[in-house]
Design a protein around this nucleic acid. Structure first.
Length: 288
DNA sequence: AAAGACTGCAACCGCAACCTT
DNA sequence: GAAGGTTGCGGTTGCAGTCTT
């Protein structure tokens, strides 16, 4: 318990006397916060607000910095590749915007959330309307279901659930359940390069590069399979994806490790269910 | 040209988890 | 252990700009 005479209490009282600003940020406020952050770095946000001479609460400063002022932010419209990635991730993670944002460098959770709620959701809705009404398994667009994937992008002929899932499987894995229910492949081949970091292709589904990083290159994957078909991103069995370390602080060196789990999660589940998996492995891919 | 509807974005709010005293 | 503070997250709202009628 803090004593009434604590410095923090005093400051709190002082702050409460001073009227804190709300609403849109002025260029002057932006400049103050930017200058302060660049010279002093991140710290306690309430201190930052005070020391930078801003009549704002720390929370507001934090939001402004994260969503607008941060130097590593990427501005402008979402690329089709980013859009596709967002949809993929959302189909797995749902509305966990911060986790989605952690995997799309330079984009904030707020930005992605807004993008989803406006552009993507609307587009999916339209697509669903256009698609046949006989698809009685279509859910709300807010749900990570097959409707999502069917609405925005073509279903792939190698639907993992119908091809490889044994319908008698008793697995209760949420991933599996989702896949079983929605009848879609969460991670169809990502072609095209990602423009993820500093406008350059740093990591993409160029498997000749990626496989080296996980020591898969000696498996003759490319020769054997040509274009890789990553069936399932190994987002851990419970779908709780750990935040990617290094994001924000070192955007250029951050490792974005999309794990296509080797012979583990889905492969094992499928094999356990008695279905043949056709020899296709699921690979670990590292973006760096 | 004007008014209303729509859209996209920035920011706020409330909550929960974690930290500090 | 309790109380208060901080941080982070997702949902929601408000508003300015754009579009439509």
């Amino acid at each position: 318990m803090r004593k009434p005479g604590d410095q923090m209490v005093k400051e709190k009282l002082n702050n409460s006397k001073a009227k804190l600003r709300k609403g849109l940020w002025s260029p002057e406020e932006d400049e103050k916060l930017m200058n302060y952050m660049l010279t002093n770095g991140q710290g306690c946000w309430s201190d930052i607000a005070r020391n930078a001479g801003l009549q704002r609460c720390g929370k507001s400063c934090r939001l402004r910095w994260i969503n607008y002022l941060r130097p590593d932010l990427k501005r402008g419209a979402f690329s089709p590749q980013e859009e596709e990635l967002i949809i993929h991730l959302h189909s797995i993670l749902g509305n966990r915007w911060s986790q989605i944002a952690a995997r799309i460098p330079g984009r904030t959770d707020n930005e992605i959330k807004n993008f989803w709620n406006s552009t993507v959701k609307k587009r999916l809705k339209n697509s669903n309307n256009n698609s046949t009404s006989s698809q009685n398994n279509s859910d709300s667009v807010s749900e990570p279901t097959g409707a999502v994937m069917q609405g925005l992008m073509p279903m792939h002929e190698y639907d993992v659930t119908t091809m490889y899932m044994d319908s008698s499987s008793s697995s209760s894995s949420s991933m599996e359940a989702m896949v079983m229910k929605s009848q879609f492949n969460p991670f169809p081949p990502m072609v095209n390069n990602f423009d993820l970091i500093n406008g350059t292709v740093v990591g993409s589904f160029d498997f000749s590069t990626c496989l080296e990083q996980v020591d898969m290159s000696n498996r003759g994957f490319e020769q054997e399979y040509g274009v890789m078909e990553p069936y399932v991103m190994g987002l851990e069995n419970d779908l709780s994806v750990p935040a990617l370390e290094g994001k924000g602080t070192e955007p250029n060196s951050a490792v974005y490790d999309y794990i296509f789990d080797t012979e583990a999660n889905i492969n094992g589940q499928l094999n356990n269910s008695g279905s043949a998996f056709d020899g296709r492995d699921i690979y670990s891919i590292t973006f760096c």
